[in-house]
Computed example of a mutant assay.
Amino acid sequence: MFKRKTTARRNLEADGYLPLLWEDDYCQVVIVPLENTAYVLKSIAEIKPLSEASRTDFGFTEIFEHGEMPITTISKEIREEYLTWLLKGFGFERATHIDYNCDKIIDCTTGQTKAYGFSNFTLFFETEGEFVKHIWISISTLVSLAEISVEKFELIKSVLYSLGEECEMILVDWNRMELIDLRNRNKINNYLSYFWK
């Protein structure tokens, strides 16, 4: 049963960008250090056959834990200030609040979880002190590529590529059991095109 939208939520949506964060999506499409490539590929090889066997029309009958990355994002010492500068430089909108599970509003200005993006793509990150602890994304599959401006599509690709080139990061989609080298523009384009055909 969905809760009714509160007046506060309606006002925030009317004011602009209010990304939705589902608890189940936390770090499911995650951006992590390149040094984790071998670990991720090994994990995908172990989990993929089990996940395919448990897939239904409505999701999965089993839960598969992939565990913590051997090389953590925070160990890369990516400063919040740098990531914010990068995202703003590519025109990503900064969210002041996050709609968490459709039942709680999180304040991004004071909390550790931040969000930047557009109505159909959000890059979330969590901080610990001045450093970025986790980075993950949410992509809306409810829109087609025709509904996304070419400019926004290029900005999203450019941000992901910058994270790959400048910070040596990869994208891991645990939902699709796929690893994307963010230093490769073609792989980024192919990955995003899957969602927005």
Rank of each mutant, 00 (worst) to 15 (best):
S158P: 03
K104T: 11
E13G: 09
L34Y: 06
Y100W: 08
I156R: 02
C27E: 11
W174H: 07
D173A: 04
L123A: 02
G16P: 01
P70E: 10
E154C: 06
E93S: 08
I63P: 00
K88V: 05
Y194S: 02
F195K: 02
E151C: 09
E77D: 10
L83F: 08
W196A: 06
A146N: 15
I137Q: 03
A115D: 03
I71P: 01
E178K: 13
P33W: 01
L182C: 09
Y100H: 02
D181F: 07
S75I: 07
L182P: 03
C108K: 04
W85K: 15
E93I: 10
V150Y: 03
C102S: 13
N120K: 13
T110L: 12
V150L: 07
M1G: 15
S140L: 11
E178T: 13
Y116I: 05
R176Y: 04
W136I: 01
I139E: 08
M69F: 11
T6C: 12
R55I: 11
T84Y: 03
S54C: 13
F90A: 09
E166P: 06
W22N: 13
P19K: 05
L145V: 09
F90V: 10
N11Y: 09
T73K: 04
F64E: 07
H66S: 06
L163P: 02
F90C: 11
F2A: 13
T37N: 07
L83R: 02
T37S: 09
I148Y: 01
I31M: 07
H66K: 04
R79K: 14
A14Q: 13
E151F: 10
W136V: 02
E147Y: 09
R4N: 07
E165I: 15
L87T: 09
Y161T: 00
K76T: 11
D57Q: 14
L50A: 14
G129T: 13
K5I: 06
Q112N: 13
D24F: 05
V150I: 07
G59T: 04
E13I: 14
C167A: 11
A38G: 07
Y39L: 01
F64T: 03
Q112L: 14
E81A: 14
T7H: 11
L21F: 03
Y17P: 05
C108D: 01
N120L: 08
A115C: 09
F121I: 10
E65V: 12
H134D: 14
S43P: 04
W196D: 04
I106Q: 05
V29W: 00
I135G: 04
T37P: 04
E128S: 15
E77V: 09
I98D: 00
M169E: 05
F124K: 12
W85D: 13
G164T: 06
E81N: 09
G89Q: 05
I71Y: 15
L18F: 10
L20I: 06
Y82P: 04
L160Q: 00
R185H: 10
K197Q: 12
N184H: 13
S144M: 07
S144K: 08
W196K: 02
Q112V: 12
V159P: 00
Y116E: 00
E52K: 12
I180A: 04
E147A: 12
V159F: 03
W22G: 03
P33I: 00
I180F: 07
K104A: 12
I98C: 04
H66Y: 15
M177A: 14
I74H: 05
F195S: 04
P19R: 05
A146I: 10
T84P: 00
P49M: 06
A8T: 14
N190W: 12
